[in-house]
Amino acid sequence: MTLAVDVRGLNKSFGDKHVVQDVAIQVGTGRITGFLGPNGSGKTTTLRMLCGLLTPDSGEGEVLGLDFRKEAERIKRQTGYMTQKFSLYEDLSIEENLTFVARVYGLDDRRRRVREALERLGLDNRRRQLAGSLSGGWKQRLALAASILHEPRLLLLDEPTAGVDPKARREFWDEIHALSAEGLTVLVSTHYMDEAERCHDIAYIAYGRLMARGTGEEVIARSGLVTFRGEGPGADRLARELAGKPGVEMAAAFGAALHVSGTDRAALEAAIAPWRKPPFRWSEAAPTLEDVFIHLMGQSKDNFE
């Protein structure tokens, strides 16, 4: 697998806050890599360093085969970046925004590209609407259209679906997959587990450090996490009693059911033993990505706080 992004030892501090510590990111060419982690874990900072918006304190490696510290300008030309907060001009229309972007990148055949982008994203009949008057979902489509207008080889998306309804989110991801199928490499930061599951690869970052990397299955398998699922009347209310017991790293209600997870199988079984009788039914479940992430979050907290 060739790597579109391969950087190591990435560090960035703001004042005395070490926001990104020694992070290594690898993104396979043509793949969709999900970039996960809790709020304030350094995802946005990492993405901004990759596209040249922030200067890293240290770090080395290549983005699109170019030295990412020395050739930021050339990388910029081949990278699309969609910001977390809508950052196009609200007082320009959709079409005017796209035309502006096309001009800034010095694209040839500007009218055709803008028209195609409008059609592709279904924005054609709203082309004259001011960007500021669009709903969250349409703004997001516009931002995506703008970030891929110059046909980048790498697309960086910073929590692109925050505040967007499920249908728009679904359509957005279909579009991302379609772009990926055409060969575009995508690095997307997100909080949503269903979105993480739609990624080819996952990188999990917490407190500025990379905690896990690989496909979803690999990340789950490597976590060594064991999960039991408890069902029965009031099972969900056991969470509070089980939390904090030795061996229970996580106990959370999922609807009426309860998930308890831990890395030490024996201790975990001992912890749930008192309730392992009717009316409760227990079964071993495959840990979900969410289980793994919450587990990783707890772990990183222990290590770094």
């Binding site: 918006l53 300008e73 990278t79 970046y81 910001t83 950052s87 196009l88 990148y105």
Partner: peptide, 13 residues
């Protein structure tokens, strides 16, 4: 203030 600088800086301008 409007956050549009982030997009502008990401372009080659």
């Amino acid at each position: 203030e409007r956050g549009t600088m982030e997009s502008l800086l990401a372009t080659p301008v």
